[in-house]
Design a protein around this nucleic acid. Structure first.
Lengths: 163, 163
DNA sequence: TGCTGTTATATATCATGTTATCGTTTAACC
DNA sequence: GGTTAAACGATAACATGATATATAACAGCA
């Protein structure tokens, strides 16, 4: 059956990018599920931002991640519920709420940086390794590659290899 | 301020693709809003699929578009409410519900194909025209291009040019 | 000092994708 | 032919993005 989104080319590029992005997130989620980490894959960018940049107020976190502020507020509330981040009032400006990693969050990030993120990054990099040429061709190659073996399977294969 | 998603490269490729896709859809939506077309940009792929492939049951529509079936069921209900598609029972299989364009839907698609889609496609194609090289570089160029002038502005410029 | 406008965050609501599951219809097989 | 399995689509519940707007705190100036 014809893949209409693919056939339509540039006209539906937005839908297509979202579709690929969602598959990547879902695959990554399966990797995390197997490792029994209690965080959704979509929350990791926020943790990584705090790791890289240190404690930040909500607005700057939104800016650093390129998402709208209400989404960040929600993510922060969720991660605070899990005990991974905490929020403190700014001293000199009562409006600002500074988000920082808790001790638990710090530990999770350190473990992830050491054991998990490199594997995922490598699997995605492999998927995109030999790509060249026009964008639409590269996207098609990624879709085909994911259909052949998702990120979770690529990570698992690499892990199995080590063991 | 550092763009963390961009800095993380392949690790956050999923989030990044979704982010770009959403901006493209939002820009396209603004073009449609100006033209006072009563359909969300994300519904056009479904209409285009019916246009290309003819009447289809829900499941095959989902397959052709590469989305999960419940999303298609919802979109079809929405477009039926707007009078753009209609649903009829299959003769030989009472489970299948065949979706087809109504006369109004047909007219909308014909107008869009003639007047709207080519402009959007051209604006997106221009945005991606000179790209080459590794995927992440191309994505960065697209993000920069969209920040400089979104799809809606590129379409408007082209239209203004004609007038 | 008190009014006014701006900024930072929270909340409400919507859009659009997902998985899991249910009821109905069909098909397969003894 | 009747039981069992599979297929189709609807529904429920959730995830994660958006926009619009309300609330509270700050800043500037008469």
């Amino acid at each position: 059956m014809e893949d209409v989104i693919r056939s339509l080319g540039f006209l539906c590029l937005g839908s297509r990018l979202k579709r690929i992005g969602e598959q990547l997130q879902a695959d990554t989620q399966r990797v995390l599920d197997r490792l029994e980490v209690p965080v959704q894959s979509s929350q990791y960018p926020l943790l990584a931002a705090l790791d890289r940049l240190g404690p930040l107020p909500v607005g700057e976190l939104a800016q650093a991640l390129g998402f709208a502020q209400p989404g960040i507020t929600r993510s922060v509330a969720l991660l605070a519920e899990l005990g991974l981040v905490e929020v403190s009032q700014s001293n000199n400006d009562q409006r600002r709420r500074i988000v920082s990693l808790t001790r638990t969050g710090r530990r999770l990030v350190d473990v992830a940086k050491r054991d998990v993120w490199p594997r995922i990054e490598k699997a995605v990099a492999d998927l995109c390794a030999d790509l060249s040429g026009p964008l639409l061709d590269q996207l098609a190659a990624i879709e085909d590659g994911l259909a052949a073996a998702g990120i979770d399977r690529r990570v698992r294969n690499a892990v199995d290899c080590v063991q």
